[in-house]
């Protein structure tokens, strides 16, 4: 489940890059969500400087950072795409509604009151809600086109598979992080209704997903 989840996560980022480059625009894509993910990865992967887990872990962490940086570059700076980024539509105020509350939560709920642990908790809470600006954009547009819908589906699926992996760990009496689990559950719930409409649309053979 862990590996499958990670693969879905990378796939989702690559699908989004492909989506932007292939259609030569970033209509309906929230750059704020990508910026939030950048903050998530930057605060969680501080441990890159502290200890080594495995070549796999290091490689994946660096890959997430690079691909997310590339996506932000495409939307904000690349000549070909930046005019198509909907700055006005991507108006969710994340400083007030997401960054502040997540920081407060991480000061209360953490494994140890140290800088690195607080940043780690912060990244878990922020990841759970980082998708909200993208959801808000999709809600406004009412319809999600094909590749974007695959992006959302794979990104949501990744955290669901992590939940399966945590459940498997619990059944094996292995320790799990309750902060991760609670963040993961909130994150997956945020995707629940999108999953429903996605599967409905794909069963009908629709190219895009209509949201109510």
């Amino acid at each position: 489940f862990r590996i499958a989840g990670d693969m879905l996560h990378v796939a989702s980022l690559l699908i989004l890059a492909f989506r932007i480059r292939n259609s030569k625009n970033c209509v309906g894509i929230s750059c704020k969500t990508q910026e939030l993910y950048m903050i998530v990865f930057a605060t969680r992967y501080l441990d890159l400087f502290l200890y080594f887990v495995s070549l796999y872990n290091t490689f994946m962490k660096v890959a997430y950072l690079i691909i997310t940086g590339y996506l932000i570059y495409l939307m904000r700076f690349a000549k070909l795409y930046r005019q198509t980024y909907d700055v006005k539509g991507d108006s969710f105020q994340y400083w007030k509604w997401l960054l502040g509350p997540c920081f407060v939560l991480s000061m209360i709920f953490n494994v140890e009151f140290t800088f690195v642990e607080i940043m780690w908790s912060f990244s878990i809470f922020l990841e759970a809600v980082a998708f909200v600006p993208q959801l808000e954009m999709m809600r406004k547009m009412g319809r999600v086109e094909n590749l974007t819908s695959h992006y959302v589906f794979t990104l949501g699926g990744y955290r669901l598979l992590y939940i399966f992996s945590w459940v498997a760990k619990i059944m094996d009496n292995e320790p799990i992080s309750w902060i991760s689990l609670s963040g993961g559950v909130v994150q997956t719930i945020l995707y629940a209704d999108f999953f429903y409409y996605y599967i409905l649309a794909k069963l009908k053979g629709d190219k895009s997903v209509a949201l109510p």
């Binding site: 862990r2 990670d6 996560h9 441990d47 502290l50 200890y51 887990v53 495995s54 872990n57 994946m60 962490k61 997430y64 494994v111 140890e112 140290t114 800088f115 690195v116 642990e117 780690w120 992590y162 992080s177 991760s180």
Partner: peptide
């Protein structure tokens, strides 16, 4: 300020 817990998830 450094944590004493090693995390193996991404």
């Amino acid at each position: 300020w450094i944590s004493s817990y090693i995390k193996d998830e991404l």
